[in-house]
Design a protein around this nucleic acid. Structure first.
Lengths: 332, 332
DNA sequence: TAATCAATTGTTACCGATAACAGAATAGTA
DNA sequence: TACTATTCTGTTATCGGTAACAATTGATTA
């Protein structure tokens, strides 16, 4: 309710001084600054974002440009969305979801892009004239947020190696994108480190395909087999394959996934997986973008998140399998 | 880029006339109205929402007050969130997620409430001084959006009856809330209609609990048993119970769920379920709230959505079980 | 015919903030 | 001492809209 003018009156200074205390505090003397701070506190001053947006020619809108088909039921995206929404809200920005077709509609202060493929850089991303931050590493020099995919996959591989497994297969996704290359590289490094030959199989990211592929393999071998998968979706398919053939998980077949967003806990037994802190990454996307907006689009670099190994029943028998409920954090 | 003044100049009228054409077109003569429309089209005029918010003393913020623990991995909520976000965006509103603890922080133009329990009405909802719309039917006279729970459960029950099943159990959630009462009533009605005695079991909404309960039942009977469940989560547990006991689904045991948001498709075989159009309901919540805001909080009533029966492998053998990908709609 | 009225359009002030400029006070320098 | 810099604070104009009021016009009525 209280405005700049109210605060100014209370502190017996001009509006401009109050505005300076907020935006350029170093330009105001200690004495007045304290007076103003006290007045703001007493009046519970909250700035009017519409007024600020108006005078600064801002829209207070950030677009989330989703370049791949997004299934609303895909928990991965929904978590990202939650993180972005929470953080944007803190700064009184609103979120506009746009796609390949709709992304030119309406004005905004900045854009977050996700699901981009190689060919999108020239056609779409380079054409944007607002500050941009990408979700996912890229070789084109754009600022981005990502998880350390290579490290994550090394953690998974080293985990199964530490269990004494020898017959290890990598199930990856057959697309030529950096995230997949990093995961594959992580697997290869860890295998080469112990002088094992990496065996790799790439396929569509579908539990059904993974199930089909895994059944073929499992029918033709007697040995204990480990599947290191590049997604939880593939992991779930492998678990089903084992169960259909009457094999024990994790006794006869061990499986690891990647992502750690919902799917891992749906599987029975639950999947050992590499968790990405998606909600946090969503928030970081916003922080990075807002920083960039405030610096007129200057380069702000990137931020890589640490993945986390979560060990569950698909690799170790005794592990507790009741889901640890993870609540929506950072909402107050 | 073009402003009201630009349009006014082009049409050779005053700013006020342009503003009227937008907000009160009936007050402007046909002739000028056409002139203004043309000018707007030529200049591709888009109103500045910050300026409007400023002069109308609006925040352009809507709060989503979530009164139950919300797991970010819960697809149900995420879909609701997506629907709300998409629709709010269309009207240049921003979304603020708040909880029991944080809901008083910051101003807003209206509130959407979800996950409320009986005791919340007096303590929290009645205290809000902005327009409010609830997600879920209620007996306190608040405007709301919901799905027809009774009808949905009747559809599920009649489906299994039509398959010739006789031994039918209802697995519900043990909370005393209207949505649960409606689902239970739907089951009872359909059973009484064919003169079968309804058998009801209430429990925590957990797949593990459902699995445990169902195993007990299944061990003690030889007959083909049908479980009509009040949630997909319970349904998944029942399917697992059957599989653990080596029983065939849907041959020995048939199962139906409720919600139709992701979980139904994760199960193997996939669950026959009652789909709620969650994304659409999220959009409707926003439409209803904005209508209410524009009418100074006047009562706007409620809207009930039709549920949809989706038949899958958990009740019928031959049904195709590959997931039909449902894309995020309304993003054109 | 003059007064009244309704319909339409324009003028002015203001919403709450900030940038640009102007002015005052203090410090430093010739 | 007088003059220039520097630091700090205030004044004015403005962002893009809308409400309230004023003005103009032609029609209606006493």
């Amino acid at each position: 309710m209280a405005t700049l003018s109210d605060v100014a009156k209370k502190a017996v200074v001009s509006k401009m001084t109050v505005s300076r205390v907020i935006n350029h505090p170093e330009q105001v003397s200690d004495e007045l600054r304290k007076l103003v701070y006290n007045a703001m506190k007493e009046l519970k001053y909250v700035p009017n974002y519409a007024a600020r947006a108006l005078v600064q020619n801002r829209t207070q809108v950030v677009k989330l440009l989703i370049l791949e088909e997004m299934d609303t039921t895909e928990p991965y995206y929904m978590n990202l969305l939650a993180g972005i929404a929470i953080e944007l809200d803190q700064h009184h920005y609103s979120l506009q979801l746009v796609t390949r077709n709709s992304h030119t509609i309406g004005k905004c202060d900045g854009v977050i892009v996700t699901g981009m493929r190689r060919e999108d850089f020239a056609h779409i991303i380079a054409q944007l004239d607002q500050p941009v931050v990408l979700f996912g590493q890229n070789e084109q020099g754009y600022d981005y947020i990502d998880v350390d995919n290579r490290k994550g996959m090394q953690m998974a591989t080293e985990h199964v190696l530490s269990l004494g497994c020898k017959h290890i297969l990598f199930y990856g996704i057959d697309i030529n994108e950096p995230f997949m290359a990093s995961r594959l590289e992580g697997f290869k490094r860890s295998m080469e480190h112990v002088h094992l030959k990496p065996q790799i199989c790439l396929m569509k990211n579908s539990s059904h395909v993974a199930q089909f592929e895994a059944e073929k393999i499992l029918r033709s071998t007697e040995r204990r087999t480990v599947f290191v998968c590049a997604s939880d979706r593939l992991g779930i398919g492998v678990v089903r394959a084992a169960q259909c053939l009457g094999l024990n998980v994790p006794g006869d077949v061990a499986v690891t996934g990647f992502d750690g967003v919902f799917l891992d806990r749906i599987s029975h037994p639950q999947l050992t997986t590499i968790r990405q802190p998606i909600v946090e990454m969503g928030k970081a996307l916003v922080s990075l973008l807002l920083e960039k907006i405030n610096q007129n689009g200057k380069k702000v670099g990137h931020r890589i998140f640490e993945p986390e190994l979560i060990v569950r029943g698909s690799t170790i028998q005794s592990v507790q399998t009741l889901p640890k409920e993870s609540k929506l954090l950072g909402m107050n």
